[in-house]
């Protein structure tokens, strides 16, 4: 069995460290607002699925998508700058954390509408089929989106038309303050997907390698036109958004689940299997820490947009006239 564990560890650690730095950036007052959804504790899913994907594959994410983007090759500097609402960010600061995208790595967009990005991958799958491209498209979303009708419309189309598409649910047990038990009567989500004709699997493990080997066949099958559904069970370690302290959660539950940490697990396995020494891991952690510190500096030092930027990118070939200009044309300067 080929081991990717060192790789996996690095990806997960980079995600966590990045998210911790987003939190720092917020405390420094340098983020654009507080609608920041951190994926601390949820690193395993994006890491193993990303590994199973190919370079020309595409994906969409939900609002808690920093980790997925990083795993797929996002540049922490440009991500952090976007989160700060700066000109040098991925979307010129106009999209922010919840609407970040990078077509160059196949990121077809994060979404602030729960479920909003799911049908996008159906369309991408149609393109790949039409153009006979070997790519797949993966939609990442939270357990909250399992209750959006659009998911099932999309699953049905994907199965009906044999599309190279995967639906991946990061089930962190909560949709904001509502526990999954209060949102569904039956938690058999793979059963839902199978009933539409999709391949489906659910992963509930701290071992990222084990998870990888479980989800790999689903991704591979999708590439040959059998769409799939993957549920990654995990736990949202902290609040829903940066300001939320999760008062609706049981403290003991939080404690218990924060112990169930895929990064700690991978670290121990690396040491136990003599893949990396503790010193080597510390060194790696340090490099990652420096990388993410640099992202913070980059974001803070990045320049603000000129206000003219407001009017750009609304259309491909024209910019709306500013309201002030329209008014001045009526009443003079």
């Amino acid at each position: 069995m080929n081991t990717f564990l060192e790789d996996f560890y690095k990806t997960m650690k980079r995600i966590r460290t990045f998210e911790e730095r987003v939190s720092e950036l917020f405390i420094k007052g340098e983020t654009a607002g507080s609608m920041l959804h951190l994926s601390i504790g949820e690193e395993l899913g994006p890491t193993c699925i990303s590994k199973a994907m190919n370079d020309n594959d595409t994906f969409t994410t939900h609002h808690r998508g920093h980790g997925i983007f990083l795993a797929r090759g996002g540049d922490p500097n440009k991500m952090m700058a976007e989160i700060a609402g700066k000109k040098d960010g991925y979307c010129k600061g106009k999209g922010g954390s919840m609407h970040i995208a990078d077509m160059s790595v196949g990121h077809l967009g994060a979404n602030a509408i729960v479920g909003g990005g799911i049908p996008t991958v159906v369309g991408a799958g149609m393109s790949y089929k039409y153009f006979s491209k070997p790519s797949i498209s993966v939609a990442f979303f939270g357990d909250g989106a399992l209750q959006q009708g659009i998911l099932y419309e999309s699953m049905n189309m994907a199965a009906l038309w044999d599309l190279p598409v995967v639906f991946c649910c990061i089930n962190n047990q909560y949709g904001m303050g509502t526990k999954i038990d209060k949102a569904v009567a039956v938690k058999d989500f793979t059963g839902r997907a199978k009933s539409f004709g999709l391949n489906a699997c659910s992963v509930n493990t701290l071992d990222v390698e084990e998870a990888y080997y479980k989800i790999k066949p689903i991704i591979d099958d999708a590439r040959s036109g059998k769409p799939g559904f993957i549920e990654i069970e995990c736990y949202r370690f902290y609040g829903h958004a940066r300001m939320d302290k999760s008062p609706y959660r049981d403290i003991d539950e939080e404690k218990l689940y924060r112990e169930r940490d895929p990064i700690k697990f991978a670290k121990k396995k690396l040491i136990d299997k003599n893949i990396l020494s503790k010193d080597n891991i510390d060194k790696l952690d340090n490099e990652i820490s420096n990388e993410m510190d640099e992202a913070i500096s980059f974001a803070i030092n990045a320049s603000l947009n000129d206000t003219n930027e407001i009017f750009k990118d609304v259309y491909s070939n024209k910019n709306p006239e500013s309201i002030k200009t329209r008014i001045k044309k009526i009443i003079g300067n």
């Binding site: 607002g33 609402g85 106009k94 947009n305 930027e309 709306p320 500013s322 309201i323 009526i330």
Partner: peptide, 20 residues
């Protein structure tokens, strides 16, 4: 005596950057 003026948000989506 003067045309009525409507002063509104821009005809663009709302950008995230606080200054914009």
């Amino acid at each position: 005596l003067k045309p009525v003026i409507r002063y509104t948000a821009e005809d663009t989506p709302v950008p995230v950057a606080p200054n914009l």
